[in-house]
Amino acid sequence: MSDLKSIVREKLRDGADAFLCLKNEEGTVLPALITDADSPDLELVEVGDSRYPLGKILIDLLREYPDKRFAVLVRGCDERALVELSKLEQVDLERLVLVGVACSAEEAAACGCLRPYPSDIALGEKVEAAPGREVIDEVESLSDAERMAWWREQFSRCIKCYGCRNICPMCFCKDCALEEPHLVEPGVIPPDFPSFHIIRALDMTGRCIDCGLCEEACPAGIPLRSLYRKMQDIMEDKLEYRAGESAEERSPLSFLGSEQDIEKLEE
């Protein structure tokens, strides 16, 4: 296995016009775009501990530089994001070279996603981790009324920063329902319960790739990830679809389904 520096250099010499990775900038590891195989920045590249929405950054870069090819460092979640974004026609996988990094056992355990590694691993060792279910189990032990009260208390802390949407690699719409005054009243904090959070949760259904960046960005510590995880579990259970898993199969919510699909949902 080679180190990240040699991989970046190799990909840049091998046809990629730029490499989106992370580099250490005076002690802080940040996303960086490296365009030259001889750049002194190659000495600074590292995977780091912090995750950034590289897929979201790539959407903009692919549009800004429409004739360029990009290599990109991907964890399992980044790969799932790019796969789903490709089906939603936001990125062109043909113009991307994915360089996979597996999350460490510690990272995987702390994060709790179903697949803490990409399909092709260039760096790190693949580890499996138990999916994070603590919050879901806690909520499911409650009665319906108690659940409502539980979520109401959680969302009462929302300061409507839009951080969950802004950091989300799967949120790319130019016009966002959460900024429509007839759906979300301007100037009201916390936003209306439960409509604000239901709008976002529904938009995440069949789309959320469980990276957890929303929850990490939430200044109020609202367990958003568990809400969206539960939505994805329902999607898999009822419609046999999990976002980011297959490059071909599209989300059943992104096209007009059959009567049978609707019957399945009603079961």
């Binding site: 590891v29 929405p53 903009d60 800004e64 200044p219």
Partner: peptide
């Protein structure tokens, strides 16, 4: 991006804000 200020992200390991921002910061 290019020579243009194109957006804001939170610094994930910042000692004060720890990767979160309010709407003004964003």
């Amino acid at each position: 991006t290019g020579d243009r200020l194109s957006g804001t992200l939170p610094q994930k390991d910042h000692p004060v804000s720890k990767g979160a921002l309010c709407i003004k910061g964003w």
